[in-house]
Design a protein around this nucleic acid. Structure first.
Length: 122
DNA sequence: CCCATGACCACAA
DNA sequence: ATTGTGGCCATGG
């Protein structure tokens, strides 16, 4: 039948950002996750770039949002240049016991926290 | 409205 | 394995 696809696409853009922040806040101390995983759990599996864009606007809230715990799918600190200093992200991770070598999180598979798993990993 | 950019990701060659 | 290309969603000129 001729259905009218009047789906309300004009959703609130801020919703997406706030959800990103909400997920990032859930990342446990000493663990990391990826942009794609966040986008996927939010229902937009292809919006990984938008997640990064959202985190780029965080500047003021970095105190509440551990953006340094978000890396790309390969465990690379792709966003390190957007911190106060290029080494800031690595330092913050190292302070949590996350070892970073050559801009790559070591033991990435073990330290990866999937947003779907609320509460504690493992 | 069209175009360009971006802290990404998946896939093809 | 490395490189290139397209897609994804939101923002700014």
């Amino acid at each position: 039948m001729e259905i009218l696809d009047e789906e309300p696409k004009k959703s609130l853009p801020i919703d997406f950002y706030e959800r990103v922040y909400a997920v990032v806040r859930q990342i446990p101390y000493g663990y990391v996750t990826s942009y794609g995983a966040i986008a996927e759990v939010l229902g937009h599996p292809g919006a990984a770039r938008t997640v990064g864009f959202a985190l780029n606007q965080v500047h003021g809230r970095m105190n509440d949002i551990p953006a340094h715990r978000v890396v790309n799918r390969n465990g690379v600190l792709t966003g390190k240049n957007h911190f106060e200093t290029p080494t800031r992200m690595q330092e913050l991770l190292a302070d949590e016991g996350v070892n970073v070598c050559d801009d790559v999180v070591q033991d990435f598979d073990r330290l990866f926290w999937h947003p779907r798993r609320l509460g504690r990993p493992d």
